[in-house]
């Protein structure tokens, strides 16, 4: 029987392994960066989220919506954690359409904490028209809606290493992936070449460059740093309770290990006099 298992294992390895190797070198896979929120004890870096918010607000938000993000979220613990006054100030800088009022008319008023992040375009067709026919995707959960393809051994080891950062790695890589198209590749009109975009031809022009957004805390104002910060911010936007989740998870683990230990000894005691 051992032989069968060995044979089977070999067959499985062939089945899984061969195509995985063959697929390699096809595309440039996003590099796995190190993130403060990775791993069982990972937490968001508040300063990084605040910087990322600045990049998001000054650059991304001019084309992309983030409909599930509310101004009140900006003051949330385990997030950018601005003071409530700061979040209110941000909100009041935007004009929100409200109404209808008593005269039956829609009107503009300054944003409140309970408003969601205002979309740059009134609807999808308007967004398309303004962006050469391509719809800029909503960024609220984009960090969970993107991942890079993981081959055979990777998808198993990822379960053990708790790798959940495929989306942020992809965003970081994408923002850094604008390069000259290799020879022989014709980039279609209105599209741009990106090393990491599936198909390599992306409608979004290179959005970030060195020095574009002003950082006041001494962090280097580089493309790499911007993309790292904004990716972290988008991860928070997609998963605002990550800090809480990991904290509770640790408590649950300690508790369950203690309980299973106790149950193990209880079980041994109960079965002590029974041959089984």
């Amino acid at each position: 029987m051992k032989k069968t298992i060995l044979l089977g294992a070999a067959a499985l390895a062939l089945l899984f392994g061969a195509p995985a190797f063959a697929a390699e070198g096809h595309d440039d896979l996003p590099h796995r960066e190190s993130w403060s929120f990775a791993g069982p004890f990972g937490t968001y870096d508040t300063a990084q989220l605040q910087r990322g918010f600045k990049v998001f607000r000054e650059v991304c938000a001019s084309c992309h919506s983030a409909n599930y993000l509310y101004f009140r979220n900006l003051a949330q613990e385990g997030g950018p954690h601005f003071t409530e006054a700061q979040a209110k100030a941000v909100a009041s800088e935007y004009q929100i359409t409200d109404g209808p009022n008593d005269q039956g008319e829609m009107f503009q008023r300054p944003g409140r904490l309970s408003d969601h992040w205002p979309a740059p375009f009134p609807n999808d067709p308007a967004a398309r028209v303004a962006n050469g026919g391509a719809l800029p995707p909503d960024l609220s959960v984009i960090a969970k809606a993107r991942a890079s393809h993981v081959g055979f051994p990777g998808f198993i080891t990822d379960a053990f290493t708790q790798y959940q950062e495929g989306g942020v790695d992809y965003i970081h890589a994408l923002l850094n992936g604008y390069v000259e198209a290799p020879e022989g590749v014709t980039v279609q009109a209105g599209l741009n070449y990106n090393k990491y975009f599936p198909g390599h031809q992306i409608a979004m022009p290179k959005p970030l460059s060195d020095g574009q957004v002003e950082y006041t805390d001494g962090t280097p104002a580089t493309l790499d740093q911007y993309s790292r910060d904004v990716a972290a911010f988008l991860m928070w936007a997609a998963e605002p309770y990550l800090d809480t989740r990991k904290r509770i998870g640790f408590q649950v683990f300690v508790f369950l290990i203690v309980l299973s230990g106790l149950l193990y000894f209880t079980k041994k005691k109960v079965w002590k006099n029974v041959a089984h």
Binding site: P40, P137, V141, I142, K144, A145, R146, A147, D158, A159, Q162, Y163, Q164, G166, G167, A238, R245, K246, I248, G249, F250, V252, F253
Partner: peptide, 16 residues
Amino acid sequence: FIFYAPNYMGHPDNYI
């Protein structure tokens, strides 16, 4: 999985 890899079993496209 609940606390450390909640989206491991899911597919990213379902967040679109």
